[in-house]
Amino acid sequence: TTHTLAPLETQLNRHDDMLSVHEIRLADMDLRFQVLETASYNGTLIWKIRDYKRRKQEAVAAKTLSLYSQPFYTGYFGYKMCARVYLNGDGMGKGTHLSLFFVVMRGEYDALLPWPFKQKVTLMLMDQGPSRKHLGDAFKPDPNSSSFRRPAAEMNIASGCPLFVSQSVLETGSYIKDDTIFIKV
């Protein structure tokens, strides 16, 4: 019996190992699909942030200070970008504001694109109430800032608005519905 069981045991162990490898691969695929399904190639990002309350608390507790959006692009072969938000603020906005930043990411076609990045950037917090009083700010990239140079790492330093919206305005208006906020870039 030992003779016949030993190879089976080896096989079972191998299958267990393969199962965990596949589980990890499936989780990776899930994440990839999620990114692909929400990617935009027209230069406009709509970022849906669920579980605002929990994420805000995590930011206050300094567990997770910031969140990154899925990447988006100015075109199929254009600039790769994303947004970064600090629900409990960063810099001058720390503890009082939501800070919203724009990030230029290293993309597949950077070698063919003009640098520094010069496109106008509009950041918006969407009002989900009937008055649709979206809050927005716009900037033109500072050509001397390292944030808009051709990325040497996966991401450049985020640049944007530390005082984007005060937490009291955000939390008393109709910007949060179903514990969800929408950011448009």
Binding site: S66, V121, P141, A158, P162
Partner: peptide, 15 residues
């Protein structure tokens, strides 16, 4: 349209 000056994020950690 008014444009503001973009300010760099002060945080250098990557979550």
């Amino acid at each position: 349209q008014q444009f503001s000056m973009p300010i760099q994020c002060t945080d250098r950690t990557d979550e």
